[in-house]
Design a protein around this nucleic acid. Structure first.
Length: 109
DNA sequence: ATCCTGACTGTTC
DNA sequence: AGAACAGCCAGGA
């Protein structure tokens, strides 16, 4: 039974949540998973984002891991994400980590 | 239908 | 504080 008939696939829900992340704010994979209706599906979020193709308009760069750091496998993409975050006013610490206490999206607009 | 892989997370040593 | 282990879900071959 589909828990959410409005969604064609889990990816759609994940993308929808990511698209809802306000500019200048970040969310963790687990957080996005929870909002997407997939608690514990943090991996799924990352997997869904990894499946993104060129031409998408999702602020994927606003999604970081529980440590507030970029968890991308591709160092090039990670660098780009960091650049985009700084561009939005999200300062990354010397360790390249976001201060979730301040920039974490509360799940609301 | 089965197996493998993967942008993760929380707990424990 | 850093590293290791197990649990978790979904899609592709």
């Amino acid at each position: 039974m589909t828990p959410d008939p409005a969604a064609g696939s889990s990816y759609a829900r994940i993308y929808a949540v990511v698209a809802r992340i306000p500019r200048g704010r970040v969310a963790t994979y687990g957080q996005v998973a929870g909002l997407a209706g997939i608690p514990g599906g943090a991996r799924q979020v990352g997997y869904a984002l990894a499946a993104l193709r060129a031409g998408h308009r999702l602020p994927w760069h606003r999604v970081v891991n529980a440590a507030g750091a970029i968890s991308l496998r591709d160092p090039g993409a990670a660098e780009e994400q960091r650049f985009r975050l700084e561009k939005e006013g999200i300062g990354l610490g010397a360790a390249g980590k976001v201060d979730l206490r301040l920039d974490r999206w509360d799940g609301e607009m």
